[in-house]
Structures are given as structure tokens and as C-alpha cells.
Nucleic acid binder design. Structure first.
Lengths: 335, 335
DNA sequence: TTGAAAGCGATACCAC
DNA sequence: GTGGTATCGCTTTCAA
């Protein structure tokens, strides 16, 4: 193994000089820098991560805690992970992947043994058991999602309350007077997953202030559950003309069921999907959607974590404004 | 921060004793062990990963290199990741997530800086540019997939050649004389992804030896591509009665298109899916499937990597035998 | 602008 | 069965 000492010797300088060339924390003469860089290159030197971490208290590793159950939407999580890893690399960090299964102890372990400098935590629940732990770790943390009491922790998320409201408003402005929300799995609500509740609240609130009749329904990610939901929804006295699907997993099934029942979109029923943009485009026909900005969230989370590493930034809860893209699956009510 | 020295002092022993209690590499008297463990607990001691790595040349980190493009099947990759992380944890290892985008240099970087003890590499192509690099790293490596020349590297995968053959045989035994393969995206073939080619080869080979007429077709993961494929396939003179879908992304669309065209499964056409078991069960109706044993592969890969860490094991290429589970979507040809 | 050397917190060898 | 301590490879202070 090539060490910094080897490089120093080859370049005829001291190890500290090599270190400073690498870190840029000191001004180095042009000539010295050249010699050092040459030696580094020639010897193929690569700093040892462990030694570096030990000496500097910096691992250059970002821990990412994700839910790896199948009950949450997998492609969405994956997109998020991809965005995070890419962004982290751009800051010279690698990503250590932890699962939610490890719980609060996992966080303690990783922080306690200095495996990572900072953490990004996904799938935050309203009353999140990991929050108190995270607060005590004394390490930069960014939550994706907003617990009931973020107290001191940095959070970033889509403004789901606004999003819920915006979806209703979108439909209301098209003249819809009876709309439905096809929500996430009951399991998600039971867990108290914060975004689900917030969306629901915004949805109901806007429905009432827009004088729109709203039905809401959790829907497990299976064909059967979806059919049952649809049966119930479509059997209502007041015909539902607008449907908001806040459940990526059932988008495909939903469209094929509507088709099977002879309902055309948006002719008979408008469909607004709440999902990442690419997913809205990948359906049997493109769906008007309220975007879950997965990539932006991932990148933002990394940036916020890095900022905290640079020096204590004051905690903030950042909520991104919802944006709706019309792709033709919502339209005015036929009168 | 609590260090091993603090623990040693509190327990009235030397640091080395604490270390040995932790590692179990030395016999320790019952009494001493008790005292040490108590102190560890009381002080909340957690070994510093960097220091440990530096001193022992072991990081207890496993690097996992995954394709994070959207063109490959995301849920499948995710399942694999989940299985790997869980298994790695059971060996006391954490997982560092790398993307294929980093290419060979990424592997060099991670190995060179001792960020991980071993690597597991997904989405291996036939003529895989990373193979020569991996071979030179001198670190335990397990490839998921089999490059044309594994030379010295350990690989594990489903036996896709056998799998291709088994799917044809399954249909042939039910009396089908004209079958089709709906394969992965053209992009996958163009990349020379090894499993796609192997499956195709086995498929064709078995078709010819079973005297079955076989049509094969790559299919991009979009509705349009699928429709075009189906149009072509169903327009054939000799009516196709058996369909093998080796493309997780189009299973849903496929079934709804068949339905739309008034084709019943398996009455008019048998459908055999090549995908993870849970995916076969999650369709509009359960599909007979040839399982891609994602979880087993992930766990096996970790085990093989760990074995290599224990001492140089001789390289092997392990191919899992395909298994078909009948869920009713394939049946005898109506005559 | 550069060098010397004291740590960082473990492990594991050598002694006893 | 236990202790002392050199060592791992780097960062960073102190000195020049």
C-alpha cells in the first residue's frame, strides 16, 4: 500500500506538505505542488479512509436511512436513493445505506461508531421514535418528511397539505363538485406517516372551502383492494367526476379498471395523480399530475446536510410548493 | 467520546484486554469479562470505526454496486438491495451503496482507499469493463451475473440458459407449438447484459429441440412498445398460444392489453412470467412464473463475499436452477 | 512556504 | 489469563 509517507519521500517533501496539497488548507508553492501531484500520480496514491477519519473526525460518508419494505413505494424510494447518491458524490461523500428496520439503535450505532458524518432519514412518521435519538446524536441530520415535533431538526418535504389542497382546487376549478381521494395503503395511515395525513387534511380542507363533496379512501396496493375501492366510490349517489390518486402503486390498475368499466378519462372521470413526473408519463396514457419532486428532495437533503457539516446552520423546515402539470387526464366536467 | 482507554480504566484492566473481550480472540476470565462488559455498558462505549479499520485492516463494510438507471427494473434491484443489507448486517457489516455510473474508477477508488472489505456487483455485462479492474483489486468480489470471462472471479446468478429452456419446455409439455418470448428492453440486449442473452439462447435452443416454433422480441418498458410487440406477435400466421414474459416492467400492461384484445389467460393464451415471486402474485391475477430468486441471490452473494473474507476461497460460478411455480396462467392448448 | 511530531483510537504482537 | 506498547496512515498544531 502506498502511503502519504511514500509520496512525500518521492516528492522530496514532508508528509504534512502532501497532506496540505491534498486538502488545500495551506498555500503551497507552484513548484512543490507540481512535484507532489506528480508523485501522487506516479505512485497511484490513494488516501486511506480509515486513517483519514481517525485523524480528522470526518468520514466523508453520508448515512441514508430508507424504508425497504415492499409496502412503501419502491420505485419512488429508489429514485430518491439514486438522486442522493449522485449528489453526495458531488460533495466527495459516499453513501452508507441503512434500513428503517434498524430503528433508533441503528442510528445510535452508526453515529456512535463514527461511520458517517451526517444522516438523511426517509419515511418519517408523525410521532417518530427516531427523532429524540437523532436530536441527541449531535450530528447533522436531515429528515425527509415532517414529524409532529421536529424540534431542532432540519426537515425537507413537499408541502403535502398544500398539495392536498391544490389537487382539490385544480378539480374544483374545472367544475368538479364531487371528488374522491384514493389514498395510500391503510398501513401507511396506521403507521401515522406524516405526509399521508397532511395530504388528507389539505384535501378535506380545500374541499370544504371549495364546496366540493369529497370522499376519501385508503387503498392497499393490490388489484383487489383497488377494485373494492372503486366499487364503493362509483356506487355513490352523487357521481364522482374527479379522482385524485395519491398512491403510485395502483395507478396502472386504476386506469385499467376504469377502462374495463367503460369510463373514459377525462371524459367520464378526471384523474389527477400524485407521483413523480416520470411515473405520470409512463402510464397507459400520460396523467396530469401533482409532482412529488423526488430528485429535488434528494438533492436538497444532501445540500442541507452538507451545509450543516460546514458549520452549524440553524434548523429549518423546508416545504416545497406543489406543482401540477396538465397532461390531459383532467378536464372540465361534462354538463 | 468514550474510548477503549476509558473503558479499560473503569474496569481496572488494560486496553488490550478490553479489545480482546470485544473480539473474542483471546480467552478471558469470567470475572474480567464481566467487569469489562459492565464498564462498556455503563460508559456507553462504542468502538470507533475509523480507528478499528486503521488498526485491523477491516472496515466491516461491504460495497454494493447497483445500476440506478430507470431502464433496468427498479423494484427488482431494490429487493436485492434489501436482502443484501439485511444479510450483511447479520455478519456485522454495513453496506456502502455505489452506482454503476461510477464505473471502474469508482471501484478503484473504494478499494484503494479501503472504504470496504469486499464488493458485490450487480448488472454484469457479458464483456464487462469492470471485470479486469475487479480482478486486480485483490479484494473479495462477488458478481451477480456472469461475464463472458469470469476468470478468477466469483459469480452467482440464476441459470438463465436453463431458465430459458425450462420456460419453453413448460409450455411445450402443455402442448404449445408456437410460443413467443417477450424479452427485456432492446437497450438491455445492446448493452450485452449477460442474463438476457443467456435466457434467449436457452429459449431458442429448447424451442428447436422441442420442435416448437419460437418468436422472440425485445420490448422497451412502455405501453407503446408493448402494444407494438403484441401487434406483431399476434399477427403471425401460426397463432401463438404461449407467451413468456421476461420483462417485469410490462407484466401489468401486457395483461391489460391481452384483456382489451379479448384474449383470455390461459384459455386463449398461456402466460409465463419470469420475475420475482411476489411480483407474479401481485398482478391482476396470479401468474405462473419462473422465479428470479432475488432474495436468495442477495443473501448468497453476501455469504460468498464473507467466506472470501475468512480466507481465500477458490472462485466459483454458482448457477441456481430455475423453478417454475404454477399459478394458473398457463394451461394446455385448446384443441 | 515548509517541516517535525503529537495525536486520533483501535489492534495485536511480545512479554510475563 | 493479562498487560505494555508499537503500529496503522493521516491531520494539524507548533515552530521555523
Amino acid at each position: 500500500m502506498v502511503t502519504i509517507v511514500d509520496v512525500a519521500r518521492a516528492a522530496g517533501v514532508s508528509p504534512s506538505t502532501v497532506s496540505y496539497v491534498l486538502s488545500g488548507k495551506r498555500t503551497i508553492s507552484k513548484e512543490t505542488r507540481r512535484r507532489v501531484e506528480r508523485s501522487i500520480h506516479k505512485l497511484g496514491y490513494q488516501p486511506n479512509a480509515g486513517a483519514r477519519a481517525l485523524a480528522s473526525n470526518r468520514t466523508n460518508v453520508l448515512a441514508l436511512v430508507v424504508p425497504l419494505r415492499t409496502d412503501l413505494n419502491v420505485p419512488v424510494v429508489m429514485q430518491f436513493v439514486a438522486a442522493t447518491v449522485a449528489k453526495a458524490r458531488s460533495f466527495g461523500h459516499d453513501v452508507l445505506l441503512l434500513t428503517k428496520d434498524e430503528g433508533p439503535d441503528g442510528l445510535r450505532r452508526v453515529a456512535g461508531s463514527s461511520l458517517a458524518d451526517a444522516m438523511i432519514v426517509l419515511d418519517v412518521e408523525s410521532s417518530e421514535p427516531r427523532v429524540p435519538v437523532l436530536r441527541e446524536l449531535g450530528r447533522p441530520v436531515v429528515l425527509i418528511g415532517v414529524p409532529t415535533d421536529p424540534g431542532g431538526l432540519t426537515c425537507v418535504d413537499l408541502d403535502f397539505t398544500e398539495a392536498g389542497a391544490a389537487s382539490v382546487t385544480h378539480l374544483a376549478e374545472l367544475g368538479h363538485r364531487a371528488v374522491a381521494l384514493l389514498g395510500p395503503s391503510p398501513a401507511v395511515y396506521e403507521r401515522g406517516t406524516s405526509y399521508a395525513d397532511r395530504f388528507l387534511a389539505g384535501f378535506k380542507q380545500a374541499a370544504s372551502s371549495n364546496k366540493v363533496r369529497a370522499t376519501t379512501m385508503a387503498c392497499a396496493p393490490t388489484y383487489d383492494a383497488l377494485r373494492t375501492c372503486l366499487d364503493t366510490l362509483l356506487a355513490r349517489r352523487q357521481r364522482i367526476t374527479g379522482l385524485v390518486a395519491h398512491n403510485e402503486a395502483v395507478l396502472g390498475p386504476l386506469l385499467s379498471e376504469l377502462d374495463r368499466r367503460g369510463l373514459s378519462v377525462p371524459g367520464d372521470i378526471s384523474v389527477l395523480a400524485v407521483c413523480p413526473p416520470d411515473m405520470a408519463e409512463a402510464q397507459v396514457f400520460p396523467l396530469t399530475s401533482l409532482a412529488i419532486p423526488v430528485v429535488e428532495l434528494g438533492e436538497l437533503a444532501v445540500e442541507m446536510a452538507m451545509r450543516q457539516l460546514d458549520g452549524p446552520a440553524r434548523p429549518e423546515v423546508r416545504l416545497l410548493s406543489p406543482q401540477i402539470t396538465d397532461r390531459g387526464s383532467t378536464g372540465p366536467v361534462a354538463s
